[in-house]
Design a protein around this nucleic acid. Structure first.
Length: 190
DNA sequence: GACCGGATCCGT
DNA sequence: CGGATCCGGTCT
């Protein structure tokens, strides 16, 4: 059995949580036996008081999970064809989330989950996975520490966020340097 | 009820 | 760089 990260991990400043999610495992239980795993290699932070954040204009039906406790999933549908996975940060009442932009999937092509839409497609993450409490060990979606040999010793690159028009210059994107599963590496570094 | 733009991806 | 494709937010 795997131990999910505690709620106290998520209920901190989004800009602290985001880079710390790099190297962590996402575990998705799809049935009693079947389980998929991915290593987080690229993230972006979206905070309260951030024009690009879905919560920037207050609570709506779509974004309300961002206003709740940390550690919940926020999955939304975009461009008529893709889903994107986030984990809610900050304490209850303060919206914030970390967008998971790329995963390294063991024994798979490194490009199979190299983007926020691609990773949801590969893991079959849909709106059914919205609002799951990922700190509950019985949840079908959890995040765990990586116990493998290639521990926390990896260089991290910080750049501007990509794919957005509002506040795109904020340097709130982090990825594992030289990891082949990162979506793009051409953006301006900080 | 209608309109419009989007935290994407792929092929050209 | 354009097209696919559809939902949520906003305004009427």
């Amino acid at each position: 059995m795997f131990k999910p990260l505690k709620r106290s991990f998520f209920e901190r400043n989004t800009l602290e949580v985001a880079p710390e999610l790099l190297g962590k495992n996402i575990i998705l239980r799809q049935s009693r036996k079947k389980e998929r795993r991915g290593i987080i290699v690229e993230v972006e932070a979206y905070t309260n008081d951030d024009p690009a954040c879905h919560a920037a204009r207050g609570k709506t039906l779509r974004n309300e999970v961002m206003f709740g406790p940390g550690g919940f999933s926020y999955v939304y549908f975009i461009y008529g064809m893709y889903h994107c996975l986030n984990f809610v940060t900050e304490e209850e009442g303060i919206p914030g989330a970390v967008l998971i932009r790329a995963l390294e999937i063991p024994d798979e092509d490194p490009r199979i989950a190299s983007g926020p839409g691609k990773l949801c497609k590969h893991l079959k993450i849909t709106k059914n996975h919205n609002k799951l409490d990922c700190c509950n060990e019985d949840s079908s979606l959890i995040v765990t520490n990586n116990n493998s040999n290639k521990k926390h010793c990896f260089p991290i690159t910080q750049t501007q966020r990509i794919g957005i028009s509002q506040a795109s210059h904020y340097p709130w994107r982090w990825y594992i340097k030289d990891n082949p599963s990162v979506s793009k590496t051409i953006e301006k570094r900080v």
